Computed example of a mutant assay.
Amino acid sequence: MSASYDGVTCLPVTGVGEVRAGDDLAALLAAAAPLRDGDVLVVTSKVVSKAEGRVVTAPKEEALAGETDRVVAVRGGTSIVRTHHGLVMAAAGIDASNTEPGTLVLLPADPDASARALRERVARDGGPNVAVLVTDTAGRAWRNGQTDIAVGAAGIEVLEDHAGREDGYGNVLAVTAPALADEVAGAADLVKGKLRRAPAAVVRGLAALVLPPDEHGPGAAALVRDEAHDMFGLGAREAVLHAVRRREPRGFGAPSPAQTLAGALTEGLAGAAAGEPGCDVVVADDGTAVTVDLPGATDAASGHALGRLEERITTVAYAHGWHAAGAVPRVADATGARVVLRFVAATP
């Protein structure tokens, strides 16, 4: 897909009023903003959640626990978590603003399904063919401030893959893939704002992106990075603690290749400290196991040193996605002169 756009217009949708559970949200939005074929209707997740009854009065800690799949990082009173949708957001996207005091608004249970339902409802009885985005506000790991992103989508391709194309200088693009749905969500938020009670916006001029009525597209779920390819699945402190405690395998991404782990062990741990034994690191021919052979003495002092080295080796292996094989990772031979640690890749 490749398209050019002569101009894009973002129009706020106002006058919708308070939305409550069971309201026909699509009808309310269509009445407030007459839609045309090729429009993109961008709706804040909060108003979708209200219509779907995703408003609770539970304590925030309780609501957060229910919406959390995995904790990514905690700093003071801020919790960054991975939700059951796969989104990584502060407080799981739970919001206490623009809702009645004492209530909390959760994200829609299935934002893509919500977007599809709104799109189908708008098109019913000869209505226009529009795309629908359900959006929420999120921070960025390396930048201050927040911007809107698409958490649900229907009738639009959410990514445009440029891989294999040439730029104006003849360079072949490799990984460039604009997140079209997020770009549209951010543009729409310029007119929705946070204080003007405009729960939606109409983005006009992007008809080339809108799919035929019988095609909903991949949904915003296609924008969620798989955990195996997530290089930032844990905060810096949390990554250290997880590796040391070795209780939760998720967050480190896919296991590193065996040779990568072997290099890390050899460089950082072989003869790592004075008075500790050296180690031999061997990668199995098929790459399915990495063995660390620790020659050692049998006196108490050396045994203590060996224990410290073994702990470091196991921690480094865990951080690379490799776990000790078997229930007893330490195996001594008949002379007691060597300890063998064997690691295998583990899928979180």
Results as ranks from 00 to 15, higher is better:
Ser4Asp: 04
Asp6Phe: 04
Gly7Cys: 04
Thr14Trp: 07
Val16Ile: 08
Gly17Ser: 06
Val19Ile: 14
Arg20Lys: 14
Ala26Glu: 01
Ala31Met: 05
Pro34Phe: 06
Val40Ile: 15
Leu41Met: 01
Leu41Glu: 00
Val42Asn: 04
Val43Gly: 01
Val48Arg: 01
Arg54Ser: 07
Val56Met: 03
Val56Asn: 08
Val56Tyr: 09
Thr57Ser: 13
Ala63Val: 12
Ala63Met: 02
Glu67Arg: 15
Thr68Met: 10
Val72Arg: 12
Val74Tyr: 03
His85Asp: 05
Val88Met: 13
Ala91Thr: 06
Ala91Asn: 14
Ala96Asp: 14
Pro101Trp: 03
Leu104Asn: 04
Val105Ser: 05
Val105Lys: 05
Leu106Ser: 01
Ala109Phe: 03
Asp110Asn: 13
Asp112Tyr: 01
Ala117His: 08
Val122Met: 08
Gly127Ala: 10
Asp136Tyr: 07
Asp136Cys: 10
Asp136Thr: 15
Thr137Ile: 13
Ala138Lys: 08
Ala138Asp: 02
Gly139Gln: 11
Ala141Arg: 15
Arg143Ile: 02
Asn144Glu: 11
Gln146Ile: 08
Glu157Phe: 06
Glu160Val: 09
Asp161Met: 04
Gly168Arg: 08
Gly170Trp: 11
Asn171His: 14
Val172Trp: 09
Glu183Leu: 15
Ala187Trp: 03
Gly193Glu: 06
Leu195Pro: 00
Arg204Met: 02
Ala207Tyr: 00
His216Trp: 01
His216Asn: 05
Ala220Tyr: 00
Ala222Gln: 01
Asp230His: 07
Asp230Gly: 07
Met231Asn: 05
Val240His: 07
Val244Asn: 01
Arg246Asp: 05
Arg247Ile: 14
Arg247Met: 12
Arg250Lys: 11
Arg250Thr: 13
Arg250Tyr: 06
Gly253Met: 06
Ser256Glu: 13
Pro257Asn: 04
Ala258Gln: 05
Glu267His: 12
Ala270Glu: 09
Ala270Met: 07
Gly275Leu: 07
Asp280Trp: 01
Asp280Cys: 06
Val281Ile: 14
Val281Trp: 12
Val282Phe: 03
Val282Gly: 01
Thr288Phe: 10
Ala289Asp: 12
Ala289Gly: 11
Val292Ala: 08
Pro295Trp: 11
Ala300His: 14
Arg308Pro: 02
Glu311Lys: 13
Arg312Tyr: 10
Arg312Ala: 14
Ile313Ser: 00
Ala317Asn: 11
Ala317Met: 09
Ala317Thr: 09
Arg330Tyr: 02
Ala334Gln: 10
Arg338Phe: 10
Val340Leu: 15
Pro348Asp: 12
